[in-house]
Simulated scan of single mutants.
Amino acid sequence: MILYTPLSQEEIFPQQDEAIANRHCVVFQGKSMYVEQKEDGSYQLLQLLSTDPEDFMNDAYSPGTILS
């Protein structure tokens, strides 16, 4: 079966609750993002949620970036 969707695999087939308890949708610098809170309190960008193609060209919004 093929699913044509903008959702990530984790959103369609969720993991256990404790594995995703640290993940949140936030707005940072006017951009919507899906982030994960780390043990030290910082946030790591998992997914940029934008309809503007130029946002994806900005290295500051690439997946894995630590947000301060």
Results as ranks from 00 to 15, higher is better:
residue 1 M to V: 08
residue 1 M to E: 05
residue 1 M to L: 06
residue 3 L to R: 09
residue 3 L to I: 10
residue 3 L to N: 09
residue 4 Y to D: 06
residue 4 Y to Q: 04
residue 4 Y to W: 06
residue 4 Y to F: 10
residue 5 T to Y: 02
residue 6 P to I: 03
residue 6 P to A: 01
residue 6 P to Q: 01
residue 6 P to R: 02
residue 6 P to L: 08
residue 7 L to M: 13
residue 7 L to Q: 10
residue 9 Q to N: 11
residue 9 Q to P: 00
residue 10 E to F: 13
residue 10 E to G: 12
residue 10 E to N: 13
residue 11 E to C: 08
residue 11 E to K: 10
residue 12 I to K: 05
residue 13 F to R: 05
residue 13 F to P: 01
residue 13 F to Y: 13
residue 15 Q to M: 11
residue 15 Q to G: 13
residue 16 Q to C: 07
residue 17 D to Q: 13
residue 17 D to P: 01
residue 17 D to V: 14
residue 18 E to N: 07
residue 19 A to E: 15
residue 19 A to C: 10
residue 19 A to R: 13
residue 19 A to T: 08
residue 20 I to L: 11
residue 21 A to F: 07
residue 21 A to R: 12
residue 22 N to A: 12
residue 22 N to C: 07
residue 22 N to Y: 04
residue 22 N to H: 13
residue 23 R to S: 06
residue 23 R to G: 03
residue 24 H to I: 01
residue 24 H to M: 07
residue 24 H to G: 03
residue 25 C to L: 10
residue 26 V to A: 00
residue 26 V to T: 03
residue 28 F to S: 03
residue 28 F to M: 02
residue 28 F to R: 07
residue 29 Q to M: 08
residue 29 Q to G: 03
residue 30 G to L: 04
residue 30 G to Y: 09
residue 30 G to H: 03
residue 31 K to E: 01
residue 31 K to D: 00
residue 31 K to G: 00
residue 32 S to P: 01
residue 33 M to I: 04
residue 34 Y to T: 02
residue 34 Y to S: 07
residue 35 V to C: 12
residue 35 V to E: 00
residue 35 V to L: 04
residue 36 E to K: 14
residue 36 E to D: 05
residue 37 Q to S: 00
residue 38 K to Q: 14
residue 38 K to N: 13
residue 38 K to D: 08
residue 39 E to L: 12
residue 40 D to Y: 05
residue 40 D to Q: 04
residue 40 D to T: 02
residue 40 D to A: 00
residue 40 D to S: 03
residue 41 G to S: 06
residue 41 G to P: 01
residue 41 G to R: 04
residue 42 S to N: 10
residue 42 S to D: 06
residue 42 S to W: 00
residue 42 S to R: 09
residue 42 S to Q: 13
residue 44 Q to A: 10
residue 45 L to Y: 02
residue 45 L to Q: 00
residue 45 L to N: 03
residue 46 L to F: 04
residue 48 L to K: 07
residue 48 L to R: 07
residue 48 L to C: 13
residue 49 L to H: 06
residue 50 S to G: 08
residue 50 S to A: 14
residue 51 T to G: 15
residue 51 T to W: 12
residue 52 D to P: 02
residue 52 D to L: 15
residue 52 D to Y: 11
residue 53 P to T: 11
residue 54 E to S: 15
residue 55 D to Q: 10
residue 55 D to V: 05
residue 55 D to S: 05
residue 56 F to G: 08
residue 56 F to Y: 15
residue 56 F to K: 07
residue 57 M to Q: 15
residue 57 M to I: 04
residue 57 M to W: 12
residue 58 N to Q: 15
residue 58 N to R: 12
residue 60 A to P: 00
residue 60 A to H: 13
residue 60 A to C: 05
residue 60 A to K: 14
residue 60 A to G: 02
residue 61 Y to M: 02
residue 62 S to E: 14
residue 62 S to Y: 12
residue 63 P to I: 09
residue 64 G to Y: 10
residue 65 T to E: 11
residue 66 I to G: 00
residue 66 I to E: 02
residue 66 I to F: 04
residue 67 L to S: 00
residue 67 L to D: 01
residue 67 L to Y: 07
residue 68 S to H: 11
residue 68 S to N: 11
